[in-house]
Design a protein around this nucleic acid. Sequence first.
DNA 1: CTCGCTAAACCGACCGTTCGGTCTATTGAC
DNA 2: GTCAATAGACCGAACGGTCGGTTTAGCGAG
Lengths: 204, 204
Amino acid sequence: MRATPAIDTSDARERILDAAVEVLAQRGYSAAGVQEIVDLSCTSKGSFYFHFQSKEKMVMVLVDRMSEKLVNKIHDAIRRQPTPVHRVAGGIEVLMSTFARQRKVAQVLLLNIMGHGKAVDKKFLPMRDRFAGLIQQELDAAVAQGQIAPQDTVLLSRMWVGSLQEVVLRWLLTGQPNHLTDATPALRSALLRSIGIDPAAIQT
Amino acid sequence: MRATPAIDTSDARERILDAAVEVLAQRGYSAAGVQEIVDLSCTSKGSFYFHFQSKEKMVMVLVDRMSEKLVNKIHDAIRRQPTPVHRVAGGIEVLMSTFARQRKVAQVLLLNIMGHGKAVDKKFLPMRDRFAGLIQQELDAAVAQGQIAPQDTVLLSRMWVGSLQEVVLRWLLTGQPNHLTDATPALRSALLRSIGIDPAAIQT
DNA sequence: CTCGCTAAACCGACCGTTCGGTCTATTGAC
DNA sequence: GTCAATAGACCGAACGGTCGGTTTAGCGAG
């Protein structure tokens, strides 16, 4: 039994995953071809299937990783905010600024892994649910602390994710707004109002 | 020049379009195959390509039609509402009840035509923009009539579409809520609040 | 140190299938 | 007869995945 890998496995595997982000962002799930990914990563089909059981499995690993990383980033950024509503508002800001700086992350996570038929979509939904889950958690806390009135936090968290997604999608496809983050203040305000909060009362 | 078609052209063409709805709803754009569509419609590849230049063109005709029909339906349903805000709230209700009754329309228009790479997505975006356009129109009228404060109606209309889409998508994929229209009151309320309106003041 | 062995890692030709689209032949209405 | 409409075999390309062969790196024996 080898103490260390025979070959630096992190290299080919990581290169494949990095290339997959590029291809997924450009082409969407269905049209992202394994050959194109291995070409871009300077690896081979054999290597690809050594590391991943199938294309679908590879994409799931990748999307799982990307969404987890993003959720952790949000957690870190907002945890010192004083109240749940501050935290959830801060989370929206972090999401927007992250997507603004990493278009491909937005393209993959928000747009290109859905819309491929029910069978596929269902598999990616739990990852997408992570954002809504984060928002719901904070909204639940806000209700528990009496910061907002009791309301359907499941529905609201989904609405928040959908709102944000649509704004980002338009930006990705049309370039409007010119700078995605230009939309953040108004988006944030509208979302806060949707849960009965005066936006001016929440400085983040 | 024939006074009437050799064969009832509306028949094959319509059957193709009807079949395409089914296949698109189930498989998404990329995986919706022409052969599957012609099989389902009991026509042939030859017939398909007689009527439509390409698969893409066919889908664009179909989606254009579906979205126009839906927008017209909303127009008709809301035009007698007393104010712009009544009309836009009514529009949300009509959209939700329509999608609740016609899952395939929801699957095609809201979910399965996006996410297929930038090139494809850009082509379908104008059709999707129709809903946002309708909402924006009414929000603009509401601002002009002093019903709501001046605000970024472009952004808000997109947020509204995104919110609605996400709720419908979840219903399509998970069956929650059990009845989609169960979510309508809370959705409507949150959306109205997002533009600074007290939901209780708007009876539709 | 060298060398042989082993298994992980990788390569890329190949497979069967599917795909959008083409094109020749046929049908049917006038 | 003409021509619109249709059928379906066929095309080349692309696809996810397979598999025999090669390379690489590490280990242990001498």
